[in-house]
Design a binder for these strands. Structure first.
Lengths: 171, 171
DNA sequence: TCCCACATGTAAGATGTTACATGATTTA
DNA sequence: TAAATCATGTAACATCTTACATGTGGGA
């Protein structure tokens, strides 16, 4: 959440959720909206963010958050701590099903792989849309690199699934 | 846990942890050992597993678990429920750091990517070792496919990191 | 003799989701 | 005018990790 707020501008919890859904989630994760609101209050209580209620000029009552200097300092400390970011965590339910393939009919297993390919292609389209929206925007260089990585990763995900389909045939 | 037990033989919690660390973790996840023991007791309390204390012939006192018929039934029901296994979950701390690259010195960021490549190559070696151990064993066909997928995935992970390094240069 | 691997657990706490509740505004 | 989207929250619960505690057996 602090990272999302570290980009210029202020935003509501609702907006942060949409942004996380359309970008962060492809390489990290998108928290539940209820958690976002909870974390924003927590950040404010530590002094890492401030919030502002929308005035009467706005049609809707809402609360927009912005990062504070203390928040930026904390975030930079986190980022420049020489420590290892840690290994990626992958939980791939399809692979779990393939690993336990002895419990499933071969055609059903292949059908699951095909569904996975279809879903992955759908996500690929979403990433490309996000990339198109980010294109040319100032100060979004790094987020764009993360999205490009995500794009390539999804392409590779499709290839991996197709190779696995071949392995399943050969069994 | 039930899935691990669904392969022939009986095993202790400790052994299950080692197996999960050397195989499951590459495409799904390896639970903490404390959780494994808790889940095994839980499985036994639902009748999905039975346990047997080692007799006096064994040098060490330990408890080996095996799946029951009820456990197999429950697992098959889970596997053949026509439902979607769900989308893969990826939490990639390195990408999070790249996404927030404006907080880090360029060379430090590239160093993180290089460390990631080195770690990934290490995991690749582990997968290949696991694959060598699984080679030829009866009834391990599907686990082998999952490991081959993991091997290709790690190769792709290295390539993705190297492509990203190129993007970072171009920034 | 000392350390490492084997082996099992308890308790506290962090983390995150789901279900539910509410209400305003915009769009079809 | 109905549905979708915007907008915010509470409470219960599920899930999982960390730190701690304990003891055995084998190898250097």
């Amino acid at each position: 959440m602090l990272g999302l707020l570290s980009f210029p501008g202020e935003r509501t919890g609702y907006e942060l959720k949409k942004w996380a859904d359309s970008s962060l989630r492809f390489f990290y994760w998108s928290p539940a909206i209820s958690q976002i609101y909870a974390e924003l209050r927590r950040l404010e209580s530590c002094g890492y963010a401030t919030s502002r209620r929308s005035g009467p000029e706005e049609p809707r009552a809402k609360r927009a958050y912005a990062i504070t200097d203390a928040g930026r300092t904390a975030l930079s400390r986190w980022a420049s701590a020489g420590q290892d970011p840690g290994a990626p965590v992958l939980k791939h339910p399809l692979l779990l099903r393939v690993w336990l393939g002895h419990l499933t009919q071969p055609e059903q297993l292949r059908a699951l792989v095909h569904e996975h390919v279809a879903r992955t292609r759908g996500e690929l389209k979403e990433v490309r849309d996000a990339l198109a929206r980010a294109d040319g925007v100032e100060a979004w260089g790094h987020p764009q690199i993360a999205l490009r990585w995500s794009e390539r990763r999804l392409i590779s995900e499709v290839e991996l699934a197709e190779a696995m389909l071949g392995d399943l045939e050969g069994l």
